[in-house]
Design a protein around this nucleic acid. Sequence first.
DNA 1: AAGTAGATGTTCT
DNA 2: GAACATCTACTTA
Length: 204
Amino acid sequence: MRVVRRHYTAILARTMSRPPRCIDFGADAPALARALIGATLRVDGVGGVIVETEAYDGDEPAAHSHRGPTPRTAAMFGPPGHAYVYRSYGIHWCLNFVCREAGHGAGVLIRALQPTHGLDTMRARRGLTDERLLCAGPGRVGQALGITAAHYGLSLCEAPFDVRPAPAGVPVQVLTGPRIGISQAQDLPWRFGLAGSRYLSRPF
DNA sequence: AAGTAGATGTTCT
DNA sequence: GAACATCTACTTA
């Protein structure tokens, strides 16, 4: 009995000290946006460390989902852990992670990465050599990772996506601030970034 | 360094 | 018609 309890205690301790194996997409948008800082995102093996995110929620007027589902925003109202992809200003493809529960219209916009995998592919897609500018902004992330409408609604837990939590034991200092490029709900500090990163779209 | 024009799908007024 | 979860190229100081 004693041995058994020690056994379970050891498993529990190991479980708790180990980083979560999968991202908790059931979290609400600000919690997920914060948790994603330091995580690694790859699409077909190309990507890097997430250094900047923004949270959005259907309850709040800056979100595309705020006025209910439309053909464009349908994925935001689907199950968490899937991709919501939209065309920004008719030109750029931007990637979001749907979260919370189906029906809430909650998601996290991936705003910037520190490139770590497939640098040559990203440079070719972006027509640029400056590593610092490869993924420093949501439109740039979309172009560097080859995001298109084909990724709309896909699961983030299956290929071509590969999302891994930040390694435990490496403390990440997360900055917060107002979201960029919005006119509604500017008071919400729902932009999150990795302190000291040179790959942010803009300083905090 | 800072400002502006222009590219243009989706949605709303 | 206007606004928009943006980026680039180009102008002006």
